[in-house]
Design a binder for these strands. Structure first.
Lengths: 339, 339
DNA sequence: CTGAAAGCGCTTACAG
DNA sequence: CTGAAAGCGCTTACAG
């Protein structure tokens, strides 16, 4: 590997001068700068990130993004937005996928590891425990969350209670009175606030509409399509089955649609289904849903992290909670109840 | 940040001893090691990766994974497999998403940048040009490809010609004689070998079955669902429309199904459709497809990269091309032609 | 505008 | 078993 010394020798100048010339710093003659640049390119020189990091105060120029499940549409799309923004500002994105594994979680969030290998951490869709928060929040540590809020950290998310209320409002306006909720109640070893908030929105909407609350109509779909199928079957096999299902994610809603098809329950004639996300597959299923801007949330989170990194450590940074808005997309899976 | 000096001072030993104790090296008394360990934990000490990297020969313990489109199922699933394996061996995964942007491609593959920031590079689904190959292949550089082969680098992939032949064989065995191909012919500014090979498999299968080759039956679906919809409409609006469509990916196949539905073309009665991948959504669509093991391919690629890194530079490493096998999954979108 | 020198936080022979 | 010292490849005051 060619080092800064090689370039310096080649040009007959000191390493200090090479360093300045290459970084576009002032106090280098144009002539010298040109020669250095030329030699650097010719020799194929790139600074060693380790040396740069060590010499200039430890910045790694990499931001960790921690997600629970990379392959799910929401998370990979957040990644897309964050990566693009980070790359633009010449930072690397280090991917940490927890995969529902408590051990992985512990290794990532429960140690100091993360805090030295990266400059900042973006946590997506996982609620750190109090202990984890304390560990991550060391002074100078930059943490941003996506999809949920933690008091002292900046965040970006939708309003989970409101989005659920909007979905319910659509169903209620259509005339439905017996509406089931498919969400995620168990936490798979991770902690999510999202399911809790959406469930709350569901219940509040029920109350607001003067509809009775039947706890047996709240089922766990684990935020997966498979979970949606199971939930769908459980709900549709009941004698007093609901006329509509509100699923807290499109993936679960798609599962419910599948279960309905398997049982010969017609949608939307016999059953209305609504989801949340506007997953890329939703329009193929004709699914009515609440769209949320996901790429944008990833981008905003990256920007927040980068902003904190560039600001002075003792700037009084009021944590900024950004709430992006959702939009009802009516397609073919919702209609007035037939009975 | 607490440094190795703090720990050394705390224990009244030298930094060399702390270094040895913490890394489990021999020639440290058990008593000393215990004291050092305790102090390190108590002080919350973690080695600075920059210092470690600089002092011990530049290893960054991070592997770059370069993908063209993070959000597509195939790529995010490769990521899942690779991340898990890398994490297990205490490496970071740095994500590089090209996003169909030629500029991004140039920045990533066309410079030395990548080669110093990471120890190894895993390139997924993109064929580097000759120039890029030369630049990436500097001595000591470890590059592994997924989904395609490059002569001097290890790789893991399915047999793209064979998988296409298998899909076609299924259709031919069902009695279809007029079969269209929906693939990706234009390259979106990136280079993919996959579409080319699958197209070749399609043509070879046609020849093997003694079927005529009609070039107008080969259309470009761009490997997206939207492309699949367009292709579907184009194909189904013809007076001499095909009785079956072989799509080179499930995402495109799903698009074709959607187009058929929009036009009132019944599947499989009026049209058979087969894809490749076994995308997580495919079973909800009842799509017949050729399943490929994707998580496993990501894992193998990571393992190959790590293996090369740990072996001696002048080991004569014959590049190992791993081919994983595919499996026909028959569901409800394929049947004998009705006419 | 340019260079000599110290320092970033570790690891690694080399002595002892 | 342990320590003093050099060195990894840069950046950064400080002189000049």
């Amino acid at each position: 590997m060619t080092s800064i010394d090689d370039v310096a020798r080649e040009c007959g100048v000191s390493t200090a001068t090479v360093s300045r010339a290459l970084r576009g710093l002032p106090r280098v003659s144009e002539d010298t700068r040109a020669r250095v640049l030329e030699a650097a390119v010719r020799l194929g020189y790139t600074p060693s990130p380790h040396a740069v990091g060590l010499a200039s105060g430890g910045r790694t120029r990499t931001v960790a993004v921690v997600v629970p499940f990379v392959t799910r549409w929401y998370f990979s799309t957040i990644l897309l937005g964050a990566e693009r923004e980070l790359r633009r500002r010449d930072h690397d994105l280090a991917l940490y996928n927890l995969g529902g594994d408590p051990e992985a979680r512990d290794r990532v969030l429960g140690t100091e590891l993360l805090t030295k290998r990266v400059d900042a951490i973006v946590i997506v869709g996982i609620e750190p425990t109090a202990t984890e928060q304390r560990r991550l929040a060391r002074p100078g540590r930059t943490v941003v969350t996506v999809g949920l809020r933690v008091p002292h950290w900046p965040s970006v998310s939708i309003d989970d209670v409101e989005v659920a209320e909007k979905a319910m409002a659509h169903l209620v306006a259509l005339g439905h009175r017996r509406i089931a909720y498919v969400g995620g109640l168990k936490d798979e070893g991770l902690d999510f606030t999202t399911p809790r908030l959406r469930l709350r929105g569901y219940r509040q909407a029920l109350a607001a509409a003067g509809l009775p609350h039947d706890p047996t109509l709240e089922v766990d779909g684990g935020f997966t399509s498979d979970g949606g199928i199971e939930s769908g079957h459980a709900l549709l096999s009941r004698p007093d089955r609901p006329t509509a299902v509100f699923a807290a994610s499109d993936e679960m809603a798609i599962g419910v649609l599948h279960a309905a098809k398997e049982r010969g329950v017609r949608v939307p004639e016999d059953l209305s289904v609504i989801g949340i996300d506007d997953h890329e597959m939703s329009r193929f299923m004709g699914l009515t849903t609440l769209r949320q801007p996901v790429v944008q949330q990833g981008q905003i989170a990256a920007r927040q992290a980068l902003h904190l990194l560039s600001s002075e450590p003792d700037d009084e940074h009021v944590p900024e909670h950004v709430t992006v808005s959702t939009e009802l997309i009516v397609r073919e899976t919702t209609a007035p109840p037939s009975s």
